[in-house]
Simulated scan of single mutants.
Amino acid sequence: MEAQPQTVHLSDGCAIRAKLLGDEPGKPLMIAHHGAPGLSTHLEAEAAYGDFADKFRVLVFDMRGCGDSDKQRPYTHAQWTHDIDELRQWAGAEKCVMIGASHGGFLTLEYALTYQQHLYGIIVGDSAAQVSHWGAINMTKAALTDPRVKPDPEQLVRMLSGNCRDQDDLMTGFATIAPLYAAPDAIKDLAEIDAGAVISKSIKPFYETVNAAMNDCASRYDVRDRLHEIKVPAFVFVGRHDWITPVPCSEFIAEKIPTSKLVIYQTSGHFAALEQKTPFQRDVREFIKTLGIPEFKA
């Protein structure tokens, strides 16, 4: 039977829309975080990681300020990370595996640094340890020089710096750069699915959340000097053609986390877990076998 959405009321009264995939007794918990606060929802995480429900109870959800969850502030990494731990408790698990890509990768790293005692391991994809490590300037340059797109320069800067004027400003701006998230056309034919089509189904935009994530949160996000504190095993992955968090960002994460493994998917863009789903699933499942999860059955 297909999992049904549930409403989880957090301690501050915020209502979070969540689903437990593969919710069967005895399975360990995997928390799967979507990316792009204010643009994405649990549907992205479900598409990318839902197949792990054969071995896990996979918790997917719309983060605070996204999708069908409450638009209750604050929109900060500290609050979003605390929300994740309340969801873990709601799911009734002392420990879990956490997986997230892009901004979901930021929060996976933040969760590991704050709640490491509740983790078997983490899986971090197409992400970075500091936003200015790649930064709005580099993203703007990449978008303005790629022949696949022709964004309005001023609108692009507003969006990437967290200064969208309204919903229309956000969505028209995002539409102009959406092709950049997939691998280039010459390579994209090798991908198993069109990741962009999957992601577009999950978009339920809120420009205030995007602005907070791209401005206030991004300006404060920097875990470079703390990555060595993460002692649980880490699987780090990235698409070779990721334009927004390019390969060196993931290489840095893998270098600084002492227990990490890095995999680069050669024909992927920013959605490696979707664009090369078969090798991604294979590699992650092999990684999970090494975590020593008591409830896990290979």
Rank of each mutant, 00 (worst) to 15 (best):
V157M: 13
G100K: 08
T290A: 14
L113N: 13
K27Y: 05
V263Q: 10
R224K: 13
D62Y: 00
L156I: 04
H118R: 00
A47Y: 05
Y111P: 14
A47T: 04
V149P: 12
Y49F: 12
G65D: 07
Q155I: 09
C14M: 10
T245Y: 14
A93R: 01
L274P: 15
A93V: 06
A112E: 10
F296P: 09
D194P: 01
L227I: 06
Q281R: 03
P279G: 09
T108P: 09
L227Y: 00
A218W: 10
A195W: 10
I293F: 00
L29W: 07
M171C: 11
S268V: 01
E44C: 04
D23H: 15
E255F: 02
K150N: 11
C164N: 07
M63A: 02
P246E: 06
T290P: 09
S200H: 06
D85W: 05
Q6A: 13
T176Y: 13
D168R: 03
Q167M: 00
D23G: 07
L144F: 13
D169Y: 11
G292A: 02
M1V: 01
D85F: 07
F235E: 12
F52S: 02
P74R: 14
S219K: 12
D54P: 01
G67Y: 08
K201H: 11
H82N: 06
K256N: 06
D166A: 01
E286Q: 15
D222Y: 00
D126W: 14
A48D: 15
N163E: 06
E295V: 01
Q89F: 11
T278W: 03
E192Y: 02
R88K: 12
A182W: 15
L21S: 14
L227C: 00
K256Y: 00
L190W: 10
I253M: 04
S161A: 05
T209P: 12
M214C: 07
V131M: 10
I99C: 00
A53S: 04
C66L: 09
D152E: 13
K261A: 13
Y120W: 02
D194F: 07
R165D: 07
V97K: 04
S200P: 09
S219Q: 15
H33N: 11
I264K: 11
P28W: 11
N211L: 01
P5V: 01
S40E: 12
D189L: 05
P147E: 04
C217I: 14
F296M: 15
V149F: 13
S69W: 12
R17I: 01
M1N: 02
P151Q: 15
P151W: 04
Q6N: 13
F287N: 06
H77W: 11
M63Y: 02
D51S: 03
G121P: 06
V131T: 15
E2W: 00
T81H: 02
A78S: 10
D168L: 07
I137P: 12
K19W: 08
M214V: 06
F106G: 14
L39F: 03
D216W: 10
F287P: 04
T245P: 06
M214S: 09
G239F: 10
R224S: 08
A191W: 06
S102Q: 14
M214D: 08
G22C: 00
K141S: 15
R226Y: 04
T278L: 05
K27T: 10
E295R: 05
V247F: 11
N163R: 05
K71M: 15
I293E: 00
P258A: 15
L20F: 02
G13S: 12
V236I: 05
C96W: 01
